[in-house]
Design a binder for these strands. Structure first.
Lengths: 250, 250
DNA sequence: CTAAGTAAGTTGGACAGTACAACTAAGTGT
DNA sequence: ACACTTAGTTGTACTGTCCAACTTACTTAG
């Protein structure tokens, strides 16, 4: 509650204690971001290669983008996350949600550290536009061909995937992975990629159209087959809770 | 990602940078807990009165239980939360879930600070057993008669209530507010108190019994009226997702 | 020019679970 | 004996998914 006297107080850590000092050891504070996009019909995550300077733990390993909070530049945690996301991808207004925090004495060899993890969704069109030199997209297949991650970032990544999948079951989150205009089958394929399973066509349509979160625009997408109606996200695309979970057709 | 050189690095914050020092300002790091219970058919939250020592912000105000992370005593954030919860309530193994983190330059007048917030559910029977002297239960009525809270704790509390209500819609969380043995109507009343609205009786029963998370025991509860079947939580009472949201009968 | 192929989108019946109201069951107090 | 209360059940209506079969529009092969 940010109001006690500090750990040194111990059992005497009570109102009216005399010590008001703040001269006790503080954990390292960082912010990490799990950035997802969809490329080539697969969910991808952005990782950065670490440096190998003196004192750098996990030299040359891959890690989630992030770093120390800069008390001079970052007004708050979300601003810090947005800054780091912009530095790596150039994206300035993605879907950004707090994922949780991980803190322990052992997760960073340099000392007690706590990280505030965020996760972001960006459309494929923005995924490569302004990528930093040390950043790279990795697919999240079932057989993980991802590199070993520094710190506890594998755990954080796994939590992010799980959060994403859970929310996709009953919200409109995948719409943030879509371009401006998209067809319903394209949206369905995005849901399927994120959930990693097939969905039933007519139930998906009924659901999406009755959920009042996308709206048709006066255009069709021409293709090799029958043209498809184009849709876009409604302005206030708040997460929508669906009545049931999806099931696969086969 | 806890691996960069520190805020001082700035634009030169790249792999291979030479500075490996950690001598930059670190935010204050705290853990706060929102502890809920049900007393007298109402949802209650535990608050503690702050001290008024020198340098203490928000003297004598109420705040969520919590305080600075003690890097010497706390192995990780959850352990820190459990310790603070035990100090205030004596409860050692409640339902404990991470709520999120709040960090900014301004939330604590002593400097840039970040708090890791948890929320806990404890049964009424444990709520008063070993309460700390400076702690007190407050009801969460519609017309909030709660005191003004220190820091941004009002915001954290509101987020906790919202999280609780959201999860209650589709999980078995309220079971953690119940004693060992309870009847179905008692469980329904707990759901109603948490959700702050009435539920439909037969749908509630169908749902709970088909969800495979409670089991009947070979006992009945005698009362002024017809006796009621007693149930208890099944061991692995993982959150259960329900097919639909509840509706009120009138 | 026609036929086969493909993907978009619709339709209709089976089914599951909630909404709601009316009912039965078992205890209490007068 | 009677009214009253709460536990628990039953039955009909309705909503939305599941699933398969269908129509529509366009492409390509022959």
């Amino acid at each position: 509650m940010a109001g006690r006297q500090g750990p040194g107080g111990g059992a005497g850590d009570r109102p009216g204690a005399k010590r008001a000092g703040l001269d006790f050891p503080r954990p390292l504070t960082t912010v990490d971001i799990v950035i997802f996009t969809i490329r080539l019909e697969a969910l991808h995550v952005l990782l950065v290669r670490r440096g190998h300077g003196e004192g750098e733990p996990f030299p040359d390993a891959f890690a989630l983008p992030g770093g120390f909070v800069d008390v001079a530049r970052d007004a708050d945690l979300a601003a810090c996350a947005r800054r780091k996301l912009a530095e790596k991808t150039g994206v300035v207004s993605p879907y950004l949600e707090q994922l949780g925090s991980w803190g322990s004495a052992t997760r960073d060899p340099r000392g007690w550290s706590a990280t505030h993890a965020y996760f972001a969704l960006i459309p494929a069109s923005a995924a490569d536009a302004a990528l930093a030199a040390d950043a790279q997209w990795f697919p999240l297949q079932d057989d993980n061909v991802k590199p070993k991650l520094a710190f506890d970032h594998a755990e954080i990544l796994q939590a992010a995937v799980q959060r994403l999948r859970n929310k996709v079951e009953y919200t409109s989150l995948p719409a943030y992975l879509m371009p401006e205009e998209f067809t319903l089958p394209e949206l369905q394929r995005t849901y399927e990629v994120v959930l990693d399973r097939l969905l039933e066509k007519s139930a998906f349509r009924t659901r999406m159209l009755s959920a009042d979160l996308i709206e048709p625009i006066a255009k069709m997408r021409k293709g090799p087959n029958r043209p498809a109606q184009l849709y876009r996200l409604k302005k206030k695309a708040a997460p929508v809770y669906f009545a049931r979970t999806f099931n696969a057709p086969e």
